[in-house]
Amino acid sequence: MSDDLEKNQQPLVEREWSRREFLLGAGGLAVVGVGALFAKSPIANAFQSLRPQTTDQGHVRLYQGDFYFDPNHMQWRVGDQVTLHLMNQSPNRPHEMWIGRGFDTTPTEFGPIATGFHTDFWDGVHINILEAYHVSNWVTNNAIVTSQVSPHPWLVTGPGNGNFSPTLEPGGYVTWSFTVPNKPGRWMYGCFVQSYIHYDEGMRGTIDILPAKV
């Protein structure tokens, strides 16, 4: 903003850039932009469906964010040995993970809200906790738990405290291993903390349990 150039500002020459290129470019960018904003998830889903679904075996990583699971779809096979790493990547929110089917609901002014899954996937499953860092609490319900780390004070054993679910503090992670039980079909996983809002805001996923290979 130092000097004054106005004495040099005459519209002198018309040197033309291509109108067609400009319109095509702007139109193309507009289409891409609108697509990115409004059709992000259909496009992402289409790409995902192109990829063949593989069965998760061995070490499975599951990340938690605000408010999503990454990945939000898994596929396990009955009888496989799975080691699940669950990590809470959120900088400031706790997250948990339930697996189940059907919903328990509570009535509110805005209609019924899902408070959790009705059937617990982990009923009677043997699990072995290998790692636990910044765990707020871990409800075991009817799962049968052995632990390689000190389970105190966060492990809440025994039924009556809700479904099986580890609740992680921000930055926390847990690892546990188990054999996929013989409960084939489609199951759901989700997080219900903070007045059940996390599930409502999209923090959910699906697991397909395939029958054992013969």
Binding site: Q9, Q10, P11, V13, E14, E16, R19
Partner: peptide, 15 residues
Amino acid sequence: KETVGWRRYFEYSTD
């Protein structure tokens, strides 16, 4: 240099 016509509305201008 500044052009004239509709194109100048899509360019840097000092007018």
